[in-house]
Every structure is written in structure tokens, then in C-alpha cells.
Amino acid sequence: MAQVIGGITTSHIPAIAIAIANKSYDDPYWKPFFDAYPPVHEWLADEKPDVAVVIYNDHGLAFFLDQMPTFAIGAAHEYRNEDEGWGIPTIAPFAGNPLMSWHIIEQMVADEFDITSCQEMAVDHGFTVPMQLFWPDRGPDMPTVIPIVANTVQHPIPTVKRCYDFGRALGKAIRSYPEDVKVVVLGTGGLSHQLDGERAGFINKEFDLMCMEKLVSDPQSLTSITRHELIRQAGTQGSELIMWMMMRGALSDEVTVLNQNYHIPISNTGAGTMLLACND
């Protein structure tokens, strides 16, 4: 049976893609951020997961406001990165795992989470930046991918509680897959940031650190945060915390923190990285 071995969170800001393209790893601005990733590379090299479930939000590449799914799951053989319009170099496609995608979709809908299934889905920086951060060399051990998109673009976005419950159902769906595959779940985006309005540049270190702590010790307690309160505390784009909640729900109740980092600022954002191993 499939096994969830752990979860990794990271911010997925487009500026990181530019920094990777420019190899700015030792630049004084970037070093405190990139230094969080070698321990993740070592863990992935040891564990060699077969599948990465990548939870992110689309920023206007795959989806527009004409049709905006609340939760979409990719079921494609291949996921292509395409031009987002403002200068991130596009990178090579990623191999999908459509049979496992369909298993997850079927199990999720049976569990009353109604899913938009996507046999074609372009992936933007929300997907590619985490993949580049975690698998910079894209070597022979590169996992196949299953992208999952949550709507953070247009309100009503799903509630924090719904996202955590989604993750619980996702974990159950993964573990019921009959193949012996090792699965890592990526929760991407965040942490606090706001790009728009007179409050642009808002970052809330205290709230971010509280979320990182509770995500490990008591994720259920975060589900009482309303969406409005989340925007107030984390900024308009800080709503991306919901993808971390989806990831956390898919892991075992008890997890071990193998590595974590929090750094301000990367671009306009409080950037968080966590490597969590399942204890079951």
C-alpha cells in the first residue's frame, strides 16, 4: 500500500524562480533563505519518494475567473510550465501519475470532497518553485507528481477547517492506493504577505511563527481561524496558509520536525520552510 512519509512546506514566490535562474544562492539577500534547503535535499536523497503531491494555488495561468474551481486535482500524464507574462524562464515538463491521480479523485469524491479533475493543467510558479527548490538537479530519482490546486484568488475561498479536513481525506485516499509507493506531500505558498492596497507590504512575524508551531503540535486549533481573520492577520495573499493546512491534514497525527526556517523578507513575504516526517 502507499505510504505518506512526510510533508515539506515552502514559500513559492516568483522572485525565487528568478534567483534560481540567476544562481543567487550565496547572495547575502538570498543565502539565509536558500540555506534552509540542503537538509531537505539530503532527506529526499535518503527517502527517495516515488510520488510528490504538490498543493499550491494557481495565480492566473491554468485558471481564470471564467471558471474558478475551489479544489482541482491534476490527472495528466505530463504537466507543462508556461509563460506567465512577466519574465520567469519556463522549465521542462513534469511527469504525472494519472492512475494514482484518478484513485485520489475517486476516493475524495466518495468521501464527499467534490473535485474538479484536470487532464490538462499548465503549472505556474506556485508549482515549479517548490519543485526547483526541493529537486534542483531533477536526477533519476525524480518523483512523479500530482498537483492539487486550491482557490486563493477569488473569495469565497475555502475555509481553513475545510482545507485541513481536505488534507485528512487526501491522506486517507493516498494510503488506500494499492501500489507500494512512498509519497511526500508539499504544502506551498505563504506565509504572511500582502501585495495589494494601502496595506501592501504587511508581514506578521508573530502570527507566522505561531502558525508554524501549531501546524506541528496542534493543527486542529488553527481551524478556528476564520477567513476574514486570516486575511487580517496574514495579509491578502497570506491566505495561502490554507495549502499548508491541506498538507498537514494528509500527514500522521504525530510528526517530527526535521528542519525548519523562517526568514523575512523574501520579496514582500515572510518565507517559511518546514520538513516534517510522519511518525506512523
Binding site: F64, L65, Q154, H155, D196, R199, H228
Partner: peptide
């Protein structure tokens, strides 16, 4: 929330043409 516009259905209706152009 001061200095903050929640992009909800009302804003999405109002801004559809502008956002579609940008998309």
C-alpha cells in the same frame, strides 16, 4: 480591514474586463 480590498464576487463582477485583459 484597513487598506485592504477583499476580492470577492462583487469585485470580480466589476473587474471582469480589466482582469480578462490582464490574463
Amino acid at each position: 480591514i484597513p487598506g485592504t480590498t477583499i476580492f470577492d464576487g462583487r469585485q470580480a463582477m466589476k473587474g471582469y474586463a480589466l482582469n480578462k485583459m490582464c490574463y
